[in-house]
């Protein structure tokens, strides 16, 4: 689940709970799901490690993805 999906579902859950038309059992389920989602969102912001890749074109024209460290002076080969 990505951040957008998580925060969107969390928003929907909050709105449904606020409308107050759920059974007790449903609202308990929703609440538990909402808590899990908000923790997930916070975790994604706190713990996510940024992933940066560079697309390198091989001599045969195929493109490969490599981790980008920022000091690849040779990465312009083939471009």
């Amino acid at each position: 689940m990505n951040f957008e999906e998580a925060i969107k579902e969390l928003e929907q859950i909050v709105e449904k709970l606020e409308q107050g038309e759920l059974t007790l059992e449903q609202s308990l389920d929703m609440f538990q799901r909402g808590v899990a989602l908000s923790n997930l969102c916070a975790k994604m912001l706190d713990e996510a490690e940024q992933k940066v890749s560079i697309l390198i074109k091989n001599k045969d024209g195929t493109v490969v993805k490599q981790a980008f460290t920022g000091n690849q002076e040779d990465c312009m080969d083939g471009f």
Binding site: N2, F3, M44, L45, A48, E49, Q50, K51, V52, S53, I54, L55, I56, K65, F68, C75, M76, F79
Partner: peptide
């Protein structure tokens, strides 16, 4: 990008 929203992957086309 990393400071604001690290969950987004960055793809660099050089």
């Amino acid at each position: 990008l990393g400071r604001r929203f690290p969950c987004a992957e960055v793809l660099l086309y050089p």
